[in-house]
Every structure is written in structure tokens, then in C-alpha cells.
Design a protein around this nucleic acid. Sequence first.
RNA 1: GGGGAGUUGGCAGAGCGGUCAAAUGCGGCGGACUGUAAAUCCGUUGGGGCAACCCACCUAGGUUCGAAUCCUAGACUCCCCA
Length: 416
Amino acid sequence: MTYHPKSEFMSVMMKRGFLADCTDYQGLDDALSNGVVPAYIGYDATAKSLHIGHLLNIMVLRWFQKTGHKPITLMGGGTTKVGDPSFRADERPLLDEAAINANIDGMQKVFANYLSYGDGASDAIMLNNAEWLDDLNYLSFLRDIGRHFSVNRMLSFESVKSRLDREQSLSFLEFNYMILQAYDFLEINRRYNCLLQMGGSDQWGNIVNGIDLTRRVLDHEIYGLTTPLLTTSDGKKMGKSQGGAIWLNGDMLSPYEFWQFWRNTTDADTGRFLKLYTELPVEECNRLGALEGSEINAAKIILANEVTTLLHGADAAKAAEATAREVFEKGGVGDDLPTLTLSTDDLGDGISIGQLIVRAGLAGSGKEAKRLIAENGAKLNDEPLTNPGLMIDAAALAQPIKLSAGKKRHALVQLG
RNA sequence: GGGGAGUUGGCAGAGCGGUCAAAUGCGGCGGACUGUAAAUCCGUUGGGGCAACCCACCUAGGUUCGAAUCCUAGACUCCCCA
């Protein structure tokens, strides 16, 4: 792959490591050089917030807009109504329309931090595939769209084949999912003249299907581009830390905790992440990522600041950094720590320390909190907690108290 | 429509009347070492409760001194045949 791109967007993608594959480098590059191109990425509407796994693609859209093009965020409002069956382990309850729309609202808030939406030529737009899926007529869909799909070919897709090989059941619904996704591309091309779909490399098959379908039905030439599936350098899936997902919505994960996630990046990933998740010049990223030993911590702080600034703003990033410095370097308390505020009603005659740890989000269950105490991992105002039966009452909360789980996770509890 | 297999902790997967809160692995958490990194090592790991104690192997009944294990019914999942 020694293609030398003309367009700024392609050049950024390649330089910064966003590019996994492209259906037609030359064709896409030409199109991008000849004017404003709309491109979309699809998102499920199943969760209330986007998480860090989505961030890579959001950055792609951001660059896309920065280099003069029109990003489209497609919400799977219609497909979500059917329920994506690919993770059918625990049959999740189907979401109703209100829940789906609430999810979409939550996500839009996040997108708005990265993209500017509006009516201008290169302003981003948000679509919902319910727009064209809701009123589909089965028979005409079969006749117009279904005839372009060869079951023989669909069976050869890796996602399908592996299921069949393992003799796992594959429902007809799930089998149809790829058709609906292809149809999305067709409709977005037809309605919004969208020329490009992007996505993770696991979406390659779906993207190609959409391209083929659009060519057959409309005779339009359109393109696909995929980003690598990111794993951390030790091979784990990106985006998990201390048990919880790294959400992008501030009310689900505080800016401080978000900042901490990036601060704790592995050495080997630092340079790569700088290129992917920040907008610092590539040379700077390379320089920072190449720092040795403990010096690379400075690079990680820059990474955390940059990424947090994009999502939550510069003030939030600064506050997170200040708090981190306070907590880790001075062993003190920063005001940006996750804070649990209790009313006197909540408190009643007193609440056990175990409950408090759970309420503060430092443990998932009372048993876990107790375990933490037993393992000497819990601290109260930096004093090791030894008594699992300790009761906290209003008097003990006259001053806010600092709870710690291990060395890295801290929270404040105050009376409010 | 008929026949068969199955449902165990976050996941994978043992157990098939007592010694089972339940092997093992993964994951998670804590500790040591460091640089708030990685690797490694050690420990820990169902839930509720301040506690005593209680609830827990799909659900509801039953048999038994005793059930995750046996019986009955139901729900769900998968496979094969039509």
C-alpha cells in the first residue's frame, strides 16, 4: 500500500494510522479532491452513551469535517427496533421507541463536541435509519432489494460462515441484518448523495454489500473505508479499565476518570494514541511517544489533556490534571474527584462503611467492599480501613471524607 | 408436527444424592515491584445485612434425614427429521 494521496483527508488518515482498508483508493481520493463529499458512519442506538470504542471513528469524522467534507452520523434507530441479534447470549429486551430516541439524544450530545452540525455544505447531519426502514413494505423490498443478494454469497461471509461452522444457530433476522445495512447505504446515497461509508474493519463486509447494492440499483460508484480494530499493545480490546466501560457521556463517567484512563495508557500505545486521538502534529506525537522510561509520563499527561479537552473542554481537562496532581503527588484531595453527596435523610442514623464504598462507586457490591477492606485496599482519609463494621454518621461527615480503593481510585463523600 | 440435547457464578466449563458457594481457566479486584506504564509474583473473587444470619446451581412443586444432583409440570435455548 504505497498509494500517495492527493486529498488532505486521505493523507491524514494514512499518516496518523486510521486506515485499515479502502475499496478504491484512487477513486475515493479523486472524489475527495473534487469537492465536498458526504460520508457516514453508522451507530447502534442500543446504549445510552457512546464509549471509547466509538472514539476512533468519531475522530475520523472530525478529520473528515476539518478537511472540508460533510460527516453524517447515522443512528440505527430502525434497526435497533428489531434488536441486533449478534450478541444473543443474554436476550436483551427490545427497546421501545422512546428509549431509542433517548439513547440517540444522549449520543448526539457527544457528537456535538466533535462535529459541528448545521445546514452548511460541510456541516454534519444526523440521520436515523428509521426514516426509511420503518415504512418498508416487505414484498416490494424483497422484489427491489432482495433480488440483488445471493444467498450463496452471503453464506460465504465470515460472520455467517463461522456461525454455521460451529453449528451455532443463525436466525433469519440476523441473516437479514446485513441486507438492511447495505440498504442503509443505498438510501443515504439516494437521499443525501453520500459517497462514502466508513467503519471499523469488522464492518468491511457490510460496507462492500452496500456498495454493490448501490451500484446495482442506482448505478452509482461509491466507496468504503475502514479503520483498524484497535487493541492495546498487549492484545486486549480497547476501552476497558477498572471493570467499567469508558463512557463518553460526562454523567456516566466523570471527566476526571476519563482523564485517568488516558493517563494510564501503556507506554507502547502512547505514540499511537496521540496520533489517533489528538490533533497534535504527527511529528510531535512521534517525539512524545518515543520518550523513554518515566519521561513518557509527560507524554501521557499531554495525551490525557488533549483527549479530555476535545470531549469535555479545556477547563475540565485542567481540573482533572490538577486533581490528579493533588491526589497522586501530594496524597491530598482534589476537588475534581468523583463526589458522593449524601443528604441527612440518606444518612439516617448512620451508614456502614461498606455501603458507603459501594455508593461512592468504588465497589460493585457490599461483598466487594468488604473484600477490599479485608485486603487492606480500602482507605478512609488515607488511613487504612480495618473495621468492616464501621458506621459513618453525620458527625463523622462534618468534614468531607476521602475514600480510596487501592492506590488509584478515590472518591469524596460529603454531606449536602 | 415428530425425535433428541441442554439451561451451573461476569464469561467459558466441571460436578450428577451428603464432604458443594460449587473444580479449573479467563476476566475482575487488592498487594509487592515500578514510573498512576508493561511484564512478573502473591492474594482474592456469588448476592443481601453493622452483625447474628439469610438468599442462591432456569421457574414452581415433589421425593428424601439430606438435592445443583432424583421425580413432575412449566419457561427458554440448541440440534436432527418432516
